[in-house]
Design a binder for these strands. Structure first.
Lengths: 219, 219
DNA sequence: TCACTTCCGTTGCAAATACAACAGACCTAT
DNA sequence: ATAGGTCTGTTGTATTTGCAACGGAAGTGA
């Protein structure tokens, strides 16, 4: 466990907690580790989650496949980010999404019960932890709202432009890279890949942007 | 303020807190009240929020209007529900949405600084408050994910069916009412109203459901 | 090097959608 | 009662999308 402390120190969840305290909290929270191969499912829709997770290495996608097989990527998890926090609420029901490793990944598990059950003597940082968790889930909330604002655009073109311009704004640079390939971007925006590809090239031909692979520049 | 205690006691935020404690917390949190007329904006995109709000009476819509005037209803706030919690994070930037009263509404404001800054002597319930807030925002998170799962459907028909069947499941009854009129439902699902109305009638003619105003029954 | 896989752009066509416009039902205030 | 407003369903058309299919580019492993 010790080797994860440096990583955890830089996560939002453990922000402001000293390394020694993190180490003792790892025991307190009953932390465990699991590895996943590329393409392996960490969780599947319908499972019950009893842990809060932090991705230590690799990359995960939170995604949902509907009855007819349409895939929708809800979120991408990068190292240091937590997930599963929406299911920490008592009686929150089964998982509604799949969690898949898009690369070989390492995941840390924390006992949810122990996170919200304060143990004042052993862990004076529990309050800080809950606070941090609140900040994190609050941020995630905002990013979901952003995704909704992209998806609510009526045309593929508008979806693309709203996403790309937001991303440029977020990275504070008209040249930026996105964490998706074409199929993943299409799934993220809930549009058809080929239609999106087509629209992307039209935008390029109209001089609104250029791109090379995942690198985009807006004009 | 006293008259709001009974209401607050039943909210998720103050769940598990006694009436006397709520009253003292109202002072501690620097609570204030404001009224809004029907159609009045409580907040507009771009404003900075320094409070957490609870709707005491009426109805609010969290909505976003894009550059071209397309309206999207992100969420509906009913009495007892809180909002603004996503902007409690330090440096979370300006509000990205509009908040509009669809009925005459009464809103309670709580000082955000004081919510997360624990004052152990005066308010032993701060921890409980943060916990409750966490549960609430966690739930909201899940409802956003649900909305995304509706919007990610490719056709208007599928959007309708996924929303309506979820709503039937949620209300545990194949007959149920929805909190939207047609235009609002269309905005919520991000589709064209007339096309949706058309599709709704096709579904009815195919015997999959019946409806009268906002009352639906699925078959 | 060569076969194999993945990713991306392109095209054609059938189907669905957005949009505008209109009419009837319903509500409300005068 | 009536006039004005809102809400809803309906229709026609231009546009967009979804889908399937294909070929080339790029990357991978034997």
């Amino acid at each position: 466990m010790k080797k994860f402390v440096a990583l955890l120190k830089r996560t939002k969840l453990f922000s402001g907690v000293g390394e020694n305290d993190i180490l003792s909290m790892l025991h307190c929270l009953n932390a465990t580790v699991r590895q996943y191969g590329k393409g392996e499912y960490a969780f599947r829709q319908g499972e019950y989650i009893r842990s809060l997770m932090i991705l230590a290495a690799g990359r995960l996608h939170i995604q949902k496949e509907d009855y007819w097989g349409n895939l929708n990527i809800l979120n991408e998890i990068r190292p240091g980010e937590m997930f599963g926090e929406a299911y920490i609420v008592p009686n929150s029901g089964p998982l509604m999404n799949d969690v898949i490793a898009t690369e070989k990944s390492v995941v840390l598990f924390f006992d949810m019960e122990r996170i919200l059950t304060v143990c004042p003597s052993a862990c004076p940082f529990h309050t800080q932890l809950v606070k941090n968790m609140f900040y994190t889930i609050s941020d995630k909330n905002k990013s979901l709202v952003q995704k909704i604002s992209y998806m609510s655009q009526r045309s593929t073109r508008e979806k693309l432009l709203s996403y790309l311009s937001d991303e440029a704004k977020r990275q504070n640079n008209s040249s930026f890279s996105i964490p998706f390939n074409r199929q993943q971007l299409a799934d993220f925006l809930s549009v058809d890949r080929s239609a999106m590809s087509n629209e992307l090239c039209k935008l390029r031909d109209e001089g609104m942007l250029i791109f090379h692979k995942n690198e985009f520049t807006l004009y």
